[in-house]
C-alpha cells in the first residue's frame, strides 16, 4: 500500500513562536520579499501562523493556527490547472511542478486556504543568505506558483535511503522542516495509511477537526482543538 502523508497540528501545544515558518523558509529556498513588498501582499510563507484575537477586552484570548497546504484529497486547485502543473501524486501529495506552470494563478484563486504563492519577481536573497540555499530544492523563477510540498525532497531522500538499505520506513523517519523545527512538538507528520502511526492516532482524536471541512476538500491536515485557557 502506498503511503498517504498527512499531518496533525496540536493547537494546545502551539505557542505561535514562528520557528516552523523560519525552518520552512530555510529548507525550501523561499525568498524574503522585504517590508515594502510584504506590505503590498507579496509575502511568501508556505507556512504561516495565523493569529486571532478572540473575545472583547479585557477578556481576550490569543490563538494561533499554523496554516500550510492541506494537501487535500479533493483539491480545488488541481482540476483548474490547464497544464497539470498542480496534480495529485500516488502518495496523496498535492504536487506542484514549477516547470510546467505557466502562471494562470487559477489554482491560487481556487484554494480556499490561500496557501499558494506567486513569484512576482525573480527571487533574491540578501547576502550572505544566498550561501545557505538548499541544493535539494529548485529555486522558482518569476511567474510561477509555489506552495508547501510537505518537504517532498525529504520524503524522497528517506524513501531512497530505506530502499537502498532494504528496510521499511518507520513512523517518524520523515520529518518536514517545520516538524523538525517545532520545539513544542505541536506538529506531527507521518503516514495516514499506517493506523499505528502517531499522526493517524492524533487524526482519530475527538479533538481533531479539519480546516474548512464544509468546503468538501478532504484535507489531510488535522487540527487538534485547544482545551487549555491561557
Amino acid at each position: 500500500m502506498p503511503h498517504k502523508w498527512g499531518m496533525a497540528v496540536d493547537l494546545d501545544r502551539c505557542t505561535g513562536c514562528g520557528a516552523c515558518v523560519t525552518a520552512c523558509h530555510a529548507e525550501n529556498n523561499i525568498p524574503t520579499v522585504g517590508p515594502a513588498q510584504a506590505a503590498r501582499g507579496r509575502a511568501m510563507h508556505w507556512l504561516r501562523v495565523e493569529r486571532y484575537w478572540e473575545g472583547d477586552f479585557p477578556d481576550v484570548r490569543l490563538t494561533f493556527r499554523p496554516v500550510m497546504c492541506q494537501h487535500c484529497d479533493a483539491a480545488p486547485c488541481e482540476p483548474v490547472c490547464p497544464t497539470y502543473a498542480s496534480h495529485h501524486t500516488d502518495e496523496g501529495l498535492n504536487a506542484q511542478v514549477y516547470n510546467r506552470c505557466i502562471g494562470t494563478r487559477y489554482c491560487a484563486n481556487a484554494c480556499p486556504y490561500s496557501v499558494r504563492f506567486f513569484d512576482f519577481f525573480n527571487p533574491q536573497w540578501p547576502k550572505p543568505l544566498h550561501l545557505q540555499l538548499n541544493p535539494d530544492v529548485s529555486v522558482r523563477e518569476v511567474g510561477v506558483m509555489e506552495k508547501c510540498t510537505f518537504c517532498v525532497q525529504r520524503i524522497r531522500a528517506v524513501e531512497i535511503d530505506a530502499k537502498a538499505e532494504k528496510r521499511e520506513l518507520k513512523d517518524g523517519d520523515v520529518k518536514p522542516a517545520c516538524v523538525q523545527g517545532c520545539s513544542a512538538r505541536a506538529l506531527v507528520f507521518g503516514d495516514l495509511n499506517d493506523p499505528e502511526s502517531e499522526v493517524s492516532r492524533l487524526s482519530r482524536s475527538p479533538r481533531g477537526s479539519k480546516l474548512l471541512e464544509d468546503v468538501g476538500t478532504l484535507p489531510k491536515v488535522t487540527y487538534l482543538e485547544r482545551q487549555t485557557q491561557v
Binding site: 501582499g41 491560487a108 490561500s114 512576482f120
Partner: peptide, 15 residues
C-alpha cells in the same frame, strides 16, 4: 520583462 510585481495584484487577489 519586469515580472508581475509591477502590477497591483497580490496575495490573495491574483486576478
Amino acid at each position: 520583462y519586469n515580472g508581475f510585481g509591477i502590477t497591483g495584484i497580490n496575495n490573495p487577489i491574483f486576478w
